[in-house]
Simulated assay, not measured.
Amino acid sequence: MATTQSRTSPRKARAQHPSTRGKGGRPPRQRHAHAAKHAAKHAKAAASGTPRRWSHEVMEHSDAMDLEADIFKTGSAQAIAESLKRSSTRSKRRKGTPFQSAMSMLNFYINRAGRNLPKARRDTLQQAKRKLREAFGREP
Rank of each mutant, 00 (worst) to 15 (best):
S62V: 07
M105W: 00
A39I: 07
K92E: 11
N116S: 13
I71S: 02
T8Y: 12
R7K: 13
A128D: 00
Q16R: 15
G114Y: 02
R112Q: 15
Q100R: 08
R21S: 01
S19N: 07
A69F: 13
R90K: 15
P10Y: 06
R93H: 12
P27T: 10
R121S: 02
H61V: 06
R112K: 13
A120S: 14
R31T: 07
G49E: 04
N111A: 13
I71C: 09
S55K: 03
E82I: 07
M103Y: 08
R53G: 01
P98N: 02
M65Y: 03
S48T: 11
A15I: 09
A128I: 04
S6Y: 14
D70I: 00
G96W: 01
R93C: 06
K23C: 06
H56F: 09
Q127L: 15
A69T: 12
S19K: 06
S87C: 15
R21W: 04
D70V: 01
A13S: 14
P27R: 12
N116V: 04
G22W: 09
T3R: 14
S62P: 05
K131G: 04
H17V: 01
G24V: 00
P118L: 03
A47R: 12
R26K: 15
S19A: 10
G25S: 03
P27A: 12
A79M: 06
N111C: 09
A15T: 06
E60F: 06
L67Q: 04
R11V: 14
S76N: 02
E57H: 15
R112P: 00
P140F: 04
S62D: 10
K85A: 03
A135L: 10
T74M: 08
S91W: 00
R112V: 12
P140K: 15
R86E: 09
G137I: 01
A120K: 13
H34D: 12
T124Q: 09
R138H: 15
K129V: 08
A36K: 14
R121L: 01
R133E: 13
T20K: 09
Q5A: 13
T89Y: 00
A13L: 13
R90N: 12
N111V: 10
R52L: 14
K129S: 11
Q5G: 11
K37W: 08
T8C: 08
R26F: 05
R11D: 08
A35Y: 03
E57N: 13
M103K: 07
H38E: 10
P28L: 12
P28C: 03
A33G: 10
P98Q: 03
K12H: 12
R122I: 03
R93V: 06
A64M: 11
K85S: 02
P140H: 11
F72P: 00
A2Q: 10
K119W: 07
F99W: 07
A45P: 03
A15R: 15
R26I: 13
D66F: 09
T124W: 00
V58C: 04
F108S: 00
R121W: 00
R26E: 11
P98H: 02
K129D: 00
A79W: 01
R52Y: 08
K85C: 05
M105R: 14
R11G: 06
S88P: 00
L132K: 03
T74L: 11
S62C: 11
A64I: 14
K23F: 11
Q126H: 14
Q5Y: 14
P98S: 04
E57W: 14
H32V: 03
P28Y: 04
A135Q: 08
